[in-house]
Design a protein around this nucleic acid. Structure first.
Lengths: 115, 115
DNA sequence: TACGTACTTTACCTTATGGTTAAATACGAG
DNA sequence: CTCGTATTTAACCATAAGGTAAAGTACGTA
């Protein structure tokens, strides 16, 4: 249980910047070169390189090589891990309500018994 | 579409620290005071106060007042927003595969036609 | 009103982010 | 082997994160 925890730091951190989320959204539609990712962002290429490093650290992307291009590919696993953590929280949270409902149900029954 | 985008920065940032995730997990089981949240963390209270501010900024928590205690409550909406963004990405990602399958299916048919 | 408990604020430090420009590297084409 | 294109590295800067210790604030109680 809770096998992530280290990686989640890097994953959520990587997701916390609009430029990086934009790049991931783009990569969801297929591989792209650095230039293609940079084009819509309005920041310098060195800045993009840095963002790519943050995403590589989180293993959100992997990179290939094709002549002078270094294409980026989206890796789904970390996104699944992030979604998994949130889902886990939802379970806890919903569990709380379920218990509350059970408790309220019990109260109702007791009320009924009293009447 | 994509109504978040500003908030997501703060939400994902807030999720990017283990102490904050631990506090959120604890809050999933119900309200807690600052002291209760701090106890398992092994960091100073001022540090905890700062983490709480980060989570308030992301609207992941709201706070009440009860004498000298300032109880924290989990707010689900931002977690839903974060999960929503990831789910959106999954749609894109899966859409890509669907299209790829369609494409491969088309190729297969063409192959079949040629033979 | 003075005291203890529960936090928060202030001041300070270190390291990480996010950005820039300019120089360096890698590779294909001529 | 030189040139152009694609991308990274280096050097630099400003600001934010994350932590601390010490002082300040808020509230119930004796």
């Amino acid at each position: 249980m809770v096998k992530y925890e280290v990686e989640l730091d890097a994953i959520f951190l990587a997701l916390a910047h609009p430029a990086r989320r934009a790049m991931l959204a783009r990569l969801g539609r297929g591989e792209a070169t650095v230039g293609e990712l940079a084009a819509p962002l309005g920041i310098s290429l060195p800045a993009v390189t840095k963002h790519l490093k943050v995403m590589e650290r989180a293993k959100l992307i992997s990179r290939g090589r094709n002549a002078q291009w270094r294409p980026c590919r989206l890796e789904e696993a970390p996104l699944e891990a992030a979604a998994g953590w949130i889902e886990e929280q939802r379970q806890v949270w919903e569990g709380r309500f379920d218990r509350l409902e059970t408790y309220l149900g019990t109260l109702e029954n007791e009320e009924g018994t009293k009447r």
